[in-house]
């Protein structure tokens, strides 16, 4: 007997597959909730103290601001004014000279100290602590001390140069010498920071590599050139980026030591921002400059993050 076309063996209902009802997965697991809980306070703080001021700063940068009142919308005119301002362009050049000079000095001294003080002897531990003194004292106090030292009238440098007939040598009022003093200030303070970063890198080099090279008759210079330096590539790059971020943004050295003078020769970007915002009351332009410097910082930070992840991958 043929079954009717509209009906099947079970009647009018088609057969249903036998499956267990699926349990809905919770949006977040307990572990994820806990993890987000740990991160949340930091995120809230970042939003409050970094993102919000950044958004407000960007908003201000699009306006003319008189006594913190937004008086007219300028669009990107403030950015154009900043990018074409002779003062800002001069400060860009001063920042480049300062940052590169300070970087070279700081890294050279920091690496030398790290190599010299690598072994954990009593003397080296004491010397490392001594080298850290300029880094741990207040940046302002340190710069103020150096200001007195470089002063022509009463400074140690002038006193030391006196017997050679150079007692009236002007350091802080000479554009080139003042930049040298500013770089010295940075090197004096931050070499210890570079030393710490690089010392950590040196300690992570397996000692057997040096031992093997020594067995093969490699000289100290050869071992440094072909064992230490290649393995220190990432720590050095990290130190370079970190110090560069610091030197591009630092305000205290220039503000206290030279006040940006003479004739703007040592006026870095940080000081230009300070002058525009706090002294000249040009809040809109100061914010525009701050946003531009922030974008430059983002690039440097991105490089830093990439280097860190490379270092973690390379770690044994």
């Amino acid at each position: 007997m043929a079954l009717p076309e509209t009906a099947d063996y079970w009647g009018s209902r088609p057969p249903q597959p036998l499956v267990m009802p699926r349990r809905r997965r919770p949006l977040l697991s307990a572990d994820e909730i806990r993890a987000y809980g740990f991160v949340a306070p930091l995120v809230v703080l970042e939003i409050l103290f970094v993102v919000t001021p950044l958004v407000i700063g960007f908003y201000y940068s699009l306006h003319r601001v008189d006594y913190f009142e937004l008086t007219s919308f300028r669009g990107f005119d403030n950015y154009w004014r900043v990018l074409t301002s002779p003062m800002v362009l001069a400060s860009l050049a001063a920042t480049a000279i300062f940052a590169i000079g300070a970087l070279i000095l700081t890294l050279s001294v920091g690496l030398s100290l790290a190599l010299y003080l690598e072994q954990d002897t009593r003397w080296n531990i004491f010397a490392r602590a001594a080298a850290l003194v300029p880094y741990v004292i207040s940046m302002l106090v340190g710069s103020l001390l150096l200001r007195w030292i470089f002063s022509t009238d009463s400074g140690l440098v002038a006193a030391a140069l006196g017997p050679f007939g150079l007692g009236d040598t002007t350091i802080l009022a000479d554009p080139t010498a003042a930049m040298g003093a500013l770089i010295f200030n940075a090197g004096w303070r931050d070499s210890a920071f570079a030393m710490i970063l690089l010392l950590a890198g040196l300690k992570s080099i397996p000692p057997q590599l040096h031992a093997a090279a020594r067995v093969d008759g490699a000289s100290a210079w050869y071992r440094f050139r072909h064992v230490t330096l290649p393995l220190m590539r990432i720590p050095i790059l990290i130190a370079v980026v970190r110090l560069l971020i610091h030197f591009v943004n630092v305000l205290t050295f220039a503000l206290v030591l030279t006040g940006g003078g003479p004739n703007g020769a040592t006026q870095t970007m940080g000081l230009a921002m300070y002058r525009l915002g706090f002294l000249d009351a040009r809040i809109g332009e100061a914010n525009a400059l701050a946003i531009l410097v922030f974008l430059f910082n983002i690039v440097l930070i991105a490089i830093n993050v990439v280097l860190f992840s490379e270092r973690r991958r390379a770690a044994p």
Partner: peptide
């Protein structure tokens, strides 16, 4: 006036005057 006055602010000048310079 010393050339260093180019980088001296009013606090510096006041201190220097007070010190007899």
């Amino acid at each position: 006036t010393p050339q260093e006055a180019l980088v001296q602010n009013v606090d510096d000048i006041t201190e220097q005057f007070t010190a007899g310079r």
